[in-house]
Design a protein around this nucleic acid. Structure first.
Length: 900
RNA sequence: GGGCGAUUAGCUCAGCUGGUUCAGAGCACCUGCCUUACAAGCAGGGGGUCACAGGUUCAAAUCCUGUAUCGCCCACCA
């Protein structure tokens, strides 16, 4: 057995072990119809991404699940990959070009896409390398990319299918437009934030003034520049302030356009002046209002946010914010400006570049979501897809019930170009509302369809836009397994088992994957959805680049090791709640890892060479009570872990493992074995060694899913034949080792030992002083136990003697006095004496409960009551009775245990 | 505006279906110890009306109602 370094130094072995695992093919899944598959697809990180703590947590959880189920005999596949991240990647490549003094528009689409691929080849694997540092047991042979050949084919296939079922359509609507990125955004991609703004009151004069008129109608807006696109003013139909003006016309200042006053219930009478300017081309509400009243739509902006030819000449070309100032100045000069107020209002920001988005009228592609949502709603309602924790189901359903159509076109170059071809007019090549469209897998296929329809070849032009990144991501669980091909992987590994992801993308991704799963595969893509905790900084703020409050997982790994990172994250992140993280927290994991290292070092330094290999336990008859105790504790922990893992309570599992290893195994059991190990009974020595090694080895296997590196490193030192802990079986509950008697005895011993230590500390008795210990008990068994444990009870004393006194001898709680050269210590053994009181308490409660039950039973037996009382009252009484029943069972169990 | 959470020790949080782990853990703090695995350690200790007010119950940190404060998500407040 190789010597273990005195210091826990994860850097010495983590990378080596990962290479060992990967090179020996342990991560590679092989189809085996005799075994049950267990599949997880990774939430594909952006190719542009670098590992952050969210990934750290998310992937640790997935890895723990994968390793756990692998050790339990499942045929696991953890399928990794990356997302092409349309806007993010395009931005990165544009930035790179800018450094070379080039612009995307100058080099053209084809060259730009080449550049993007080049960038992807050079830098796109950063995050994938970083995932390896975490220890992620991904099957890298199956790594996918959302724009690789197969996935692109899946994207086209779905688009065509949706199109043929009329579930995808093109239409002119108000969408969120990012003027900086020059593209449409989905509703979910526009992040609304409260920011301070200015609310401007503007007077619109009547087109023809009549006697008694006020000098116009005052409207209020936060975006004055959009008035240039106003086509009406609306008031509430029941607003008597304005009723007389409905149907009249106003002159739009600065534009000299005449616009009507109309009545519409969308207006909130309480807000602003109660009169609203209507700008159908620049506001979603106004767009709807405009549809209802058949108003023209005047789009006054270019795609970059500058004013276009529909604005009066002097504003053309101005940026929207510059124009806002100019408009205000002109309104003031012309006497239309009334006043301004500061207000807080919610404004959409581009989720990629944080630019304020412009509600913008444009022609885009949409997916009709309601029909797709139906089976996905049912899946959550009937439990085909289960959320952990269940609260997320509500969040999911709430969104699904109110689902809106999904804008899927993006005015970008990097992504899947929309597989739709327009039969353009041969003369000018323009695309209009009426241009025939062919959705197809290729230009040839589109042409073939066109020929079928028109009887001749036509000029086809592919839609220049690309699809939303999520349009490929929503297919991820099956496209990565080969769909639309009927591959063996797809047949075997689909549907996947669990999806582990963040709360932030339930709508973006999880919901859509479930919909796509039903649409394409006819079933849910996963059975469980585990939403991991959101990692915040120590002050509860989101970790972000701008705040610079992030903690880099790689820094943590460098300082403490991957196992410390993993264990810490597992232990401190509760499911369903945010986690406040700071660098100090990683001491939780690093101290624990250090503990494991040192305990192992101690045990292995005491194990004789011939016991190398699988530890065999001493025969049951020879096991001491502390042997039986630690083996029993081990079983209880094992049983608990399986329960917790089944419920995705990984934090509980991690904490219970640490508690067992540190408190039970190290602080009590290992300390106890020193007496035997350094004694002269050879058999005792051997027995202690085997139990030590047995429990250590089992603990390593228990811990491996959480801390793969350190457990493997030590495991390979226990087993010198080079076998890997990854191939070992996960410990299962062994009822024959559970031992209530040993646990009870140990409680007594712990009581005595703690009592002695307590006295020693409280009374400031120096460690070198011997103790004379008096234990009050009239229990013969306890007496024997105490005598047997004398050396341990002495708790670091050089010499000790036990005096057992009858229980109930009147003495203060703790007492000590010098008797000759030694100290005499009095330990009252409170816990033991309390057993009588406890028994009395439980018995009393039982009597009370039984009386209550008798009363209710009598009530229920009374026909007068059952005939007349309302149904629910009777049900309630029955319910009470049932809960008492179970309480009684527990009481009895408690009483029985006390007797034992 | 709608929805969902949270409020327990100085800090971060456990406490699942009311009653044996019922007032807990870790960190911080205080005391003692470099005890032949570990000072990245060990042993011991102090510290809480379980946000507030009502209610249900034989019994409430736990269930119900209301209040307050904080947080998150969704939504078209011009």
């Amino acid at each position: 057995m190789a010597e273990m370094a005195t210091r826990y130094a994860p850097a010495d072995f983590e990378e080596r072990l990962y290479r060992q695992w990967e090179n020996s093919g342990k991560f590679t899944a092989k189809i085996d119809s005799a075994k049950k598959p267990y599949t997880i697809v990774i939430p594909p990180p952006n190719v542009t991404g670098v590992l952050h703590m969210g990934h750290g947590l998310n992937n640790t959880i997935q890895d723990m699940l994968i390793r756990y189920h692998r050790m339990r005999g499942a045929n696991v596949l953890w399928l990794p990959g990356t997302d092409h991240a349309g806007i993010a990647t395009q931005n990165v490549v544009e930035k790179k070009l800018a450094q070379e003094g080039k612009k995307r528009q100058e080099i053209g689409r084809e060259r730009f896409i080449e550049e993007a691929w080049k960038w992807k080849e050079e830098h796109g694997s950063t995050i994938v390398k970083q995932l390896r540092k975490l220890g992620s047991a991904c099957d890298w042979t199956r790594e996918r990319f959302t724009m690789d050949e197969g996935l692109s084919r899946a994207v086209r296939e779905v688009f065509v299918r949706l199109y043929k079922k009329d579930l995808v359509y093109r239409g002119e609507y108000i969408i969120n437009w990012c003027p900086r990125c020059g593209t449409a955004l989905a509703d979910e991609e526009a992040e609304h934030r409260e920011i301070p703004g200015t609310f401007t009151w503007i007077r619109y004069p009547f087109a023809e003034s009549r006697a008694g008129d006020p000098d116009g109608i005052v409207v209020a807006t936060t975006r004055p520049e959009t008035m240039l696109g106003d086509t009406a003013v609306a008031v509430h139909p029941q607003d008597e302030r304005y009723a007389q003006f409905v149907g009249r016309e106003l002159t739009l200042p600065l534009c000299n356009r005449t616009i009507p006053i109309l009545a519409d219930t969308m207006v909130d009478r309480e807000f602003g002046t109660g009169a609203v300017k209507i700008t159908p081309a620049h506001d979603p509400n106004d767009f709807q209002t405009g549809m209802r009243h058949n108003l023209p739509r005047v789009n006054v902006m270019h795609e970059d946010g500058s004013m276009n030819a529909n604005a009066p000449e002097k504003y053309r070309g101005m940026d929207r914010f510059a124009c806002r100032k100019a408009v205000l100045a002109d309104l003031e000069a012309d006497g239309f400006f009334i006043k301004q107020e500061k207000i807080q209002h919610s404004v959409g920001h581009c989720y990629r570049c944080d630019t304020i988005v412009e509600p913008y009228l444009s022609r885009q592609w949409f997916v009709r979501m309601a029909p797709l949502a139906e089976p996905a709603i049912r899946a959550a309602e009937n439990g085909d897809v289960r959320f952990y924790i269940e609260r997320w189901k509500k969040v999911y359903l709430n969104w699904m019930y109110n689902i809106r159509d999904w804008c899927i076109s993006r005015q970008l170059w990097w992504g899947h170009q929309i597989p739709a071809w327009y039969a353009v007019s041969e003369t000018d090549g323009r695309i209009t509302e009426d241009t025939p469209i062919f959705a197809a897998h290729s230009a040839e296929e589109a042409q073939a369809e066109a020929i079928a329809r028109f009887g001749a070849r036509v000029v086809l032009r592919q839609d220049p836009d690309v699809l939303d990144t999520w349009f490929s991501a929503w297919l991820w669980p099956f496209s990565t397994l080969g769909w639309p091909e009927e591959t063996p992987d797809l047949a075997y590994f689909y549907p996947t088992t669990v999806l582990v992801t963040d709360m932030g993308i339930i709508f973006f991704w999880v919901a859509r994957m479930i919909m796509a799963g039903y649409f394409c595969m006819g079933e849910a893509p996963f059975r469980h959805v585990y939403i991991n905790s959101t990692v915040m900084d120590a002050k509860g703020r989101k970790m972000s680049k701008s705040l610079n409050n992030g903690i880099d997982p790689l820094d943590v790994i460098r300082e403490y090791g991957a196992d410390a990172l993993r264990f810490t994250m597992l232990a401190i992140t509760p499911p369903g709640q945010n986690t406040l993280l700071s660098m100090e927290k990683f001491q939780i994991g690093s101290r624990f890892a250090n503990k494991i290292w040192n305990a192992s070092r101690y045990i292995l330094s005491n194990v004789a060479p011939e016991t190398d290999g699988l530890p065999a336990l001493p025969p049951p008859a020879r096991r001491s009570f502390e042997d039986r105790w630690i083996l029993s504790r081990l079983q209880i922990v094992v049983r608990g872990i399986h329960e917790e893992m089944a419920e995705y309570r990984l934090n509980d599992a991690a904490n219970n493992l640490a508690h067992f290893f540190r408190d039970d195994f190290c602080d009590w059991y290992i300390e106890f074995t020193k007496q035997r190990l350094y004694g002269d009974d050879a058999e005792q020595q051997a027995d202690a060694r085997s139990v030590l090694l047995y429990v250590l080895e089992a603990s390593l296997r228990l811990l491996h899913p959480a801390m793969p590196f350190i457990t493997e490193e030590i495991y390979q030192r226990i087993h010198s034949d080079g076998r890997s802990i990854m191939d070992a079986a996960y410990p299962e509950f062994a009822p024959e080792l559970a031992d209530a008697d040993a646990e009870n005895r140990m409680r007594i011993v712990q009581e005595i030992v703690s009592g002695v230590r307590n006295v020693r500390a409280e009374m400031r008795i120096p460690p070198e002083k011997a103790l004379l210990i008096q234990v009050a008990t009239d229990n013969a068994e306890v007496r024997d136990l105490a005598r047997a444990m004398e050396k341990n009870i002495s708790a670091q004393a050089k010499l000790s003697e036990l005096i057992l006194l009858p229980a109930g001898s009147a003495r203060p709680k703790y007492a000590a006095s010098i008797v000759g050269e030694s100290w005499e210590v009095w330990v009252p053994l409170e816990g033991l004496i309390d057993i009588d009181a406890e028994r009395a308490r439980l018995s009393k409660e039982k009597l009370r409960l039984e009386a209550e039950m008798a009363r209710v039973q009598a009530k229920l037996a009374n026909t007068g009551f059952t005939a007349n009382a309302p149904e629910e009252v009777i049900a309630l009484e029955r319910e009470k009775l049932a809960s008492w029943e179970s309480r009684l069972v527990r009481l009895d169990a408690g009483l029985r245990q006390i007797k034992a």
